[in-house]
Simulated assay, not measured.
Amino acid sequence: MKALLLYSSREGQTKKILEFIDKELSDYQCDLVDLHQITAVDWDSYDKVLIGASIRYGHLNKLLYKFISANLSQLQSNKVAFFCVNLTARKEDQGKDTPEGSAYIKTFLKKSPWQPPLIGVFAGALYYPRYKWFDRVMIRFIMSMTGGETDTTKEVEYTNWEKVSLFAKKFAQM
């Protein structure tokens, strides 16, 4: 069996999550592809497709929505799942790591003509030392407002890998 793992990632955490899922899908041969680099998908070559996308400054990348518009009928007629990576999902005790509790997923479902049958929400990572000056300042400001890490010398990974593993199992069973 074959699976296509597409990612829209800015700092690499979404790709890292898909690499983890690739290892979890031991019964599948997986192709990991950057959504921003793909020109076309040979849908007949894959049993399943998983799309992961990250939030930056409250928004998913516009290229994700263009991909959805260009491939809507294939997304609706194949086994395709979606997950979103964001720093708000670190607040698991508030339910921000669920499709029902994620404002980003609610917005996605309103904006997208595609309604994925399986949706995941995972906390991302802070990579302060890797950010450009403007991003470092802005993300620190946002984190200070939301009670997050503000030490710009740190890298903090919030991803709950057990939750990612459970999602990979659900995806395999689709």
Rank of each mutant, 00 (worst) to 15 (best):
W114Q: 11
W114P: 03
Q115Y: 01
Q115E: 01
Q115A: 03
P116W: 01
I119G: 00
G120T: 01
G120W: 01
G120N: 08
V121K: 06
V121Y: 08
F122N: 12
F122W: 06
F122I: 04
F122T: 06
F122C: 06
A123H: 08
G124I: 05
A125D: 13
A125L: 13
Y127L: 06
Y127P: 00
Y128W: 07
R130K: 15
K132V: 07
K132C: 05
W133K: 09
F134H: 14
F134D: 07
D135P: 13
D135L: 08
R136Y: 09
R136L: 07
V137H: 00
V137G: 00
V137F: 08
M138D: 13
M138H: 09
M138R: 12
M138K: 13
I139S: 09
R140F: 08
R140V: 09
F141C: 10
I142Q: 02
I142E: 00
I142P: 01
M143T: 04
M143V: 05
M143K: 03
M143W: 06
S144Q: 14
T146W: 01
T146Q: 02
G147P: 14
G147M: 14
G148I: 00
G148N: 05
G148L: 04
T150V: 13
D151K: 11
D151A: 12
T152F: 04
T153F: 12
K154S: 02
K154V: 01
E155N: 02
V156P: 07
E157V: 14
E157Q: 14
E157Y: 12
E157H: 06
Y158A: 08
T159R: 02
T159Q: 06
T159P: 00
N160I: 00
N160H: 10
W161Y: 15
W161Q: 07
E162R: 03
E162H: 09
E162N: 06
E162V: 00
K163I: 01
V164Q: 01
V164R: 00
